[in-house]
Structures are given as C-alpha cells and as structure tokens.
Simulated scan of single mutants.
Amino acid sequence: MKMHVTALRPGDRLAADAYNPFGLLILSAGAVLDDNDINRLLLHRIEYVDIEPRLPETPGQASTDSSQAATAVARAPNPFTRTFNAAVHDVRNIFEHIRTTGEISVQVLETTAELLLDELRHERDLVRVLLTSVSHDQYTYRHSVQVGSICYYIAKWHGYAESDCVRIGTAGLLHDIGKARIPESILNKPGALTDEEFAFVRRHVEFGYELIRRSFKDEWYALGALQHHERLDGSGYPYGLKGDDIHPVGRIVAVADVYSAMISERSYRQKKHLLEVLREIYQMSFSQLDPHIVQTFLRQMMPSFIGKAVRLSDGRVARIAMVYEHDWFGPLVHVEGEFIDLSREKHLRIEEFAV
C-alpha cells in the first residue's frame, strides 16, 4: 500500500525499493523502518513509498487512508514551532526578571528547558531545528533557544548520555544570559559599537558566569556561558584559553553559537548565506573551533541539501543528488540531464542556492 512519508511509523516494512528523485536507491524492499530510516527518506525528498499491509488496528483506533493521514499531518500546527516560540517568550521573561531582580528565575528556566528538550527528543525533522530563522527581532532570546537546541543535538550526535545531552542543551540555552545586564540600547544598536560599548558587551560572558554560579550547582552551565567565545588558537575571550584548557561544553556551545549568529539577521547586517556559513565554520575548524565537533555538525547538516537547487559557478542551475564526507562542498549534482561530481570537477563550484 502506498503511504506518504509523514504518515510512516517505526516498524513499517517497505514493499518496494525506495529511490530518491534522481534514481538513487535509498532503502531496499523488506527494510523494517525506524525513526532514522524515516528521517532519511524525508532528507532525500521522497514523498511516497510502498509498504506492506499493517496489522489490524486495535479496537478504538481510528482508521484512515494514507492520503487523509498525510493531509492531517500537513495541516496540523507544527509542535516544534509552537514550543520554540513559547521558549523564546519564556527566555525573554527570564531576562526581564534578571533586569528587575538581578537573579535568574530558576523555576521558569528549568521548565522552559524541560519542555524544549522534550520536544527535541521527538522532533523527526532535525533540519527544521537547524534552519530555524533567527531575525533581528528579539534576536538575543531566539538565538538563545536555537543555540540550546543545537547544543542538545551536537551532544546527542557525539554519543553523550541523554542526561548529559540535557545538561549541554540547557548550557546552550543559558549561554548568553549575561546579556541581561547589557542595556538593550547597546544590544540592538543598528550601527557599529564604540570601543567602550564593545568592551562592555564582551563582559557578558563573565556576567553570565556569575549569575549562573549563584543560581545553579551545575558547573557545565557556568562554563558554557564563560567559555563560548574562547577559541582553540587562543584568539578568543575572556581569558584567551587554548586547546584542552577549553571545556568540551564550551567547545560545543561555541560551534552552535557561531552557526546561529552567522545565519541570523542582525540589526546591523543581513544574515549570511547558509552555504557560506558552513564553509566559514569548516575553515574555522582548522584553527579556532573544535574540528571533531564541526565535522560531526557537517555530517548531520549536509544531507539536508539533497534535492536542493543550487547555482553553479558557470551560471547553470543544478540539484544536489548526493553529498560526500571527504568533500562536503563538492557534492554530486544533476544538471541538464547529466550528473557532475563537483569533488572531481574542480573548475566548478556551488555559488549559492537558487531561488
């Protein structure tokens, strides 16, 4: 029976091979699907697959055909978007509470983190989290929520225990909490900061560390705030730490923070193109950012581009058919009826995503 991918369930068995739009085999007939398989089908832009008939539903369960299920899924409000926006609202309240009382509202923070991270555990479309747009409107609050979300996933991809993934995700959520002590007129200033203003903004890492230490016993939270602007080559702040002197949590938050900041629209500049951001992060992994964390991040990000239209350096529009771990920015593309391996054809490169 034909089933829309969004209506698949773990345990469904494929009745026929599943190919992506470029004819590449993704899953073979007989495969018993799990969440990773379903996410893989989504990433490859496969809409429908053939599955073997399911066992009869238990009494009381509603029975609908696949098209009705797909329509219901498509029309239903996205739970992650609702949770993300609610978390942004809560983070704003936490900042306002600090500005009023000088203290973190621990109960609100813990509840916000619990609801957000619980939603992330069940979010199938990881790309939605990573590509969530952060506009300059409420930038600090939205950025905090996105960084917390990305930190959770990076920790998960690195094999941390679930309890530690939660700790690292919460550290990401708290990483910029020290900005509550920076006047909003400076944070949202449309032009360049003065030297004095810039020096004061840099102190947010120390302000955050002090606030967190007063409110929480978990040292990881405090280190995420203190060290997320440190760099492996010693070029960061506040202490110019190098290499192993930077805690693993500080390194994870640093990657998530750089990514989120680069793809975001700010009051003083437009957001950067996604591919440009990933290239910059990759280059930073040779000196400033942890290369293992960046490699893990790219390994999860790049498959999301399969099926995307891109403009090549010769002006032609192609679609990405496959990505390679040995050359993230030289994928296999399909253009004008032929496949071109950009990892071999070095005279061509992707310039941008086509509109």
Score class of each variant (00 low, 15 high):
residue 281 I to C: 10
residue 132 T to R: 13
residue 259 Y to A: 00
residue 170 T to Q: 02
residue 262 M to K: 11
residue 220 W to Q: 11
residue 73 V to I: 13
residue 302 M to R: 12
residue 261 A to G: 07
residue 246 I to L: 10
residue 45 R to Q: 15
residue 207 F to A: 05
residue 109 L to K: 07
residue 211 L to H: 03
residue 302 M to D: 04
residue 141 Y to V: 09
residue 98 I to Q: 06
residue 329 F to E: 04
residue 34 D to V: 02
residue 315 G to P: 03
residue 30 G to K: 04
residue 187 L to I: 14
residue 135 S to P: 01
residue 283 Q to G: 07
residue 102 G to Q: 05
residue 101 T to C: 04
residue 273 H to Y: 06
residue 332 L to D: 10
residue 140 T to G: 10
residue 107 Q to C: 02
residue 355 V to R: 11
residue 15 A to D: 15
residue 102 G to H: 05
residue 344 R to W: 02
residue 298 L to H: 12
residue 196 E to G: 01
residue 300 Q to M: 09
residue 143 H to V: 09
residue 334 H to L: 05
residue 161 A to R: 14
residue 279 R to I: 01
residue 53 P to V: 06
residue 167 R to F: 00
residue 279 R to V: 03
residue 308 K to G: 07
residue 351 E to I: 11
residue 85 N to R: 12
residue 334 H to N: 10
residue 176 D to W: 01
residue 59 P to E: 12
residue 299 R to A: 13
residue 82 R to H: 14
residue 298 L to S: 04
residue 93 N to Y: 00
residue 157 W to I: 05
residue 240 G to E: 09
residue 1 M to H: 12
residue 340 I to M: 05
residue 265 E to V: 09
residue 39 N to H: 06
residue 148 G to E: 02
residue 227 Q to K: 03
residue 153 Y to H: 14
residue 108 V to N: 03
residue 67 S to I: 09
residue 142 R to Q: 13
residue 45 R to S: 13
residue 317 V to G: 00
residue 193 L to M: 08
residue 68 Q to I: 10
residue 264 S to K: 01
residue 37 D to T: 01
residue 294 V to R: 02
residue 261 A to N: 06
residue 255 V to T: 09
residue 355 V to S: 12
residue 331 P to Q: 07
residue 64 T to L: 15
residue 274 L to F: 08
residue 39 N to S: 13
residue 113 A to M: 06
residue 339 F to N: 11
residue 192 A to G: 01
residue 271 K to Y: 06
residue 205 V to W: 04
residue 267 S to G: 00
residue 91 V to Y: 08
residue 47 E to H: 12
residue 299 R to Q: 13
residue 248 P to K: 13
residue 72 A to K: 11
residue 289 L to A: 00
residue 355 V to T: 10
residue 13 R to Y: 07
residue 194 T to I: 04
residue 273 H to E: 15
residue 234 G to T: 10
residue 203 R to E: 13
residue 267 S to W: 01
residue 93 N to I: 02
residue 215 S to H: 11
residue 323 V to W: 14
residue 83 T to K: 07
residue 270 Q to V: 02
residue 130 L to F: 15
residue 266 R to G: 04
residue 87 A to Q: 08
residue 286 F to K: 14
residue 314 D to E: 00
residue 131 L to S: 09
